Simulated assay, not measured.
Amino acid sequence: MSRPVSVPPAVKAPVLDPTVRHLYVHMPFCPSICPYCDFHVLTRRSGQVEAYLERLEQEAAWLASQYDTRLDTVYLGGGTPSFLRDAEIAALVGSIRRHLGWGRQENTLEINPGTVSPARAALWRELGFDRASVGVQSLDDATLKFLGRQHDAAGAREAVTTLICAGFRVSGDLITAVPGQPLERDIHGLVELGVDHISAYTLTIEPGTEFARRGVTVGEDDERAGFERTEELLTAYGFARYEISNYARPGQESRHNLAYWNNRTYLGLGPGAAGHYPATRSPAVLGSGGGEEPLTLRRTNPHLHTWLTGEQGEMEDIDAEEYVTDALFMGLRLRAGLDLDELAQRSGLDVRGRYAAAIAANVQRGWLELDGPRLRATPAGWWVLNRVVTDFLEA
């Protein structure tokens, strides 16, 4: 008589919400390519946008047939989505609404300052966007020229003011650690314009970019100085740093991006878009003897020319352990950190027990702090987060 297979007490059936509540849409076209950019972007050519919109409709219909979707947030990024003509962006939004619905809590449009006018801002609001992520990057003309931006400081100020007047919640993007940048003036200027959210990213030189070919470098001391000074200034202005690179006035955090950082599932629509999906197969309990089934799935779409042929991109199974390490890497970016007991419920793993040594070692180093079930990175830990997460991977 064979013995029944038992489940170790540290492993339980995972409890994940099967409904997808977030959608990212990638629009790859830009009026020009910035020298620091390594995203999937390209300049517009005849017929490409029309082909993109047709394929987008098909992919939206396919996603709707595969997943139970009730959207809380939609994020249209790029590229420069606001570069689309009025009829084109209306067609894009129509495809999303027809097949997948629309966000009940927040709908964000990435916007280049040079594309804004009062009439266009009114159209975007009419289409259903309520949050604008504006690529300001700097309010200093010399810095903007170095970054290869097509707008000037006056144009950025006018764009932000127009969007606020149109009723948008406005987030301003800022690049720090740029040689010669007047950081204090940039931050003061953005705050003075009335934005309620600021995303501050250190200038990073990625392989294959124009800056990399030119030999542009960013010193670690400059990077750290910008990192620390940005927090000092924005905290003094009443913004809270709720994620490594993101600051908000109370209640103005990006709900869509919080879904990423909390390792929730989301759809990825468009060329180069990544998605994190519920597993189409019911997850088996780990240790049951039947082999591991994925807890969730990750798919990254191919770039435009391949995507237009209908190819769906690579699908990757995410098991419970990878799900947990992904959640740790993303969640430790948040000032609030993450709840290990809640993560254990979602994954089925005894997170506190399995990673006790890695947690203890990093608490001792002063890089993590554990408050009941909540694990968070300290400011020192944020600076070495990749090293912290490596300890969990090795565990």
Rank of each mutant, 00 (worst) to 15 (best):
W62I: 09
D221G: 08
L233S: 14
S6Y: 14
P271W: 00
V324H: 00
L370D: 01
P278C: 06
L338K: 05
L286G: 00
R374K: 02
Y52M: 06
N362W: 01
Q48I: 03
E231V: 14
Y237E: 11
G290D: 04
D130K: 09
E88T: 03
P14A: 05
L100R: 00
E184G: 13
L183Q: 00
A358N: 10
R346T: 05
H303V: 13
A156T: 04
Q252A: 14
R387F: 07
G289K: 00
A87R: 15
E314A: 12
I359V: 14
L16W: 13
V170Q: 05
Q105S: 11
T280F: 03
V93S: 00
W367Q: 10
G291L: 02
L92R: 02
A156V: 04
T265Y: 01
E369H: 11
V170W: 01
L295C: 04
S282H: 06
Y277L: 10
T115K: 01
Q312S: 10
A142W: 08
L203E: 07
C37P: 09
Q345T: 13
A87C: 04
T43A: 04
C165H: 15
H305P: 02
A132E: 00
P31Q: 09
T230K: 09
G155P: 02
E342K: 08
V7Y: 01
P302A: 09
R131W: 07
S2I: 15
Q364N: 13
G135S: 10
L23W: 10
L267Q: 04
D186K: 12
H99F: 00
D371R: 10
D326A: 05
A225N: 14
N362P: 08
N263C: 03
T280N: 08
Q105K: 13
G103P: 01
A395N: 08
T202I: 09
V195A: 12
